Amino acid sequence: MSTDAPDLSGFTGTVTFLGAGNMGGAVLGRLLAAGLPPEHARVTDLADRTRARWEEQGVSTGTDNPEAVRGASVVVLAVKPYLVADVLDEIADELGGDSIVVSLAAGVTLATLESHAGDGVPVVRVMPNTPALVGEGMFVVTAGRDCTAEQLEVVDTLLRACGQTEVVPESQQNAASGLSGSGPAYIFYVADALAEGGVHEGLPRDLAVRLAAQTILGAARMLVESDEPASTLREQVTSPGGSTAVALRLLDEGAVRYRMSAAVSAATRRAGELGA
């Protein structure tokens, strides 16, 4: 896993984003914040408001996908999964061995990317998540057969401007989607429930929200920085017969642990369906 944030001010290639909605926009915003020169970025999007946002930052925009990818060193597909094949068919004539195609679309396989991008075009399948907005994204990466180690390193460098990266075999991609891709929604769900509990017990809502958010942030930092597994860290907080023990017993009676695990499995299956 790569952890160091790069300085992109010296990046000499051109990065084209086909689509700049929530995920594509988050990644592009972090690239610019990491120093990517705006003149080295291009965006195509059908929404006037989206294009205006990037034009204000000096990024070239438009609606013509083939024109936008012409000469680009990295092409980021940030469109809905069902649009990926059509978009690749549209731009295939402009791609070559020097253009790295990076897909952020859940479930879309390397086989699909390679068959529509064309022979010899290097492709990389990536499962991102929304904390990329604040530079704490998790990007699970799989390179296609024509992607060299040097080209994969280019992609890794760009993504590290937005968070952390992990390279995995493609067989693990859908599970990564179910866990880290959908995972922020699970945490927001928990945060909302914690805050609601605090309000029920008399805390002002704004205070309850802050307590829940900081508690989750602090616990996550402990997980990242500690060598101990989550189960051990949980035990360290749980005194025998104490309030935490009572709370955890209630969660176990409600099968919350099982339901969280089952949620990851359900999201994993759905990621595979989206790719199909």
Score class of each variant (00 low, 15 high):
213 A>F: 00
31 L>T: 00
57 Q>E: 12
176 A>L: 07
103 S>H: 08
202 G>L: 00
188 F>K: 03
177 S>V: 14
192 D>L: 04
255 A>M: 11
226 S>E: 12
105 A>M: 09
141 V>F: 00
69 V>G: 04
242 G>L: 10
19 G>S: 06
84 V>Q: 03
68 A>Y: 01
93 D>L: 05
214 Q>K: 11
121 V>P: 06
200 H>D: 09
219 A>M: 11
187 I>S: 07
129 N>V: 00
14 T>S: 08
251 L>G: 12
2 S>Q: 14
226 S>T: 11
7 D>I: 08
179 L>G: 03
31 L>G: 05
253 E>H: 11
121 V>F: 02
49 R>Q: 15
250 L>V: 14
242 G>C: 11
59 V>F: 03
251 L>R: 07
249 R>I: 03
112 T>N: 06
210 R>I: 08
257 R>P: 00
198 G>K: 01
40 H>S: 11
110 L>A: 07
66 P>Y: 08
21 G>V: 05
224 V>P: 05
263 A>G: 14
81 P>W: 01
229 P>D: 07
229 P>K: 06
85 A>H: 08
155 V>C: 07
259 R>Q: 14
242 G>P: 12
209 V>T: 07
167 V>H: 14
54 W>C: 00
232 T>S: 13
107 G>T: 09
181 G>S: 02
204 P>W: 06
115 S>G: 12
19 G>C: 04
168 V>D: 10
116 H>K: 14
7 D>P: 01
269 R>Q: 15
174 N>F: 01
89 D>C: 05
206 D>Q: 13
261 S>W: 13
111 A>W: 02
150 E>H: 13
186 Y>V: 06
253 E>T: 09
248 L>Y: 08
38 P>M: 11
110 L>S: 07
75 V>A: 10
143 A>G: 15
87 V>G: 00
194 L>A: 04
139 F>K: 02
33 A>D: 15
56 E>M: 12
265 S>G: 13
225 E>V: 08
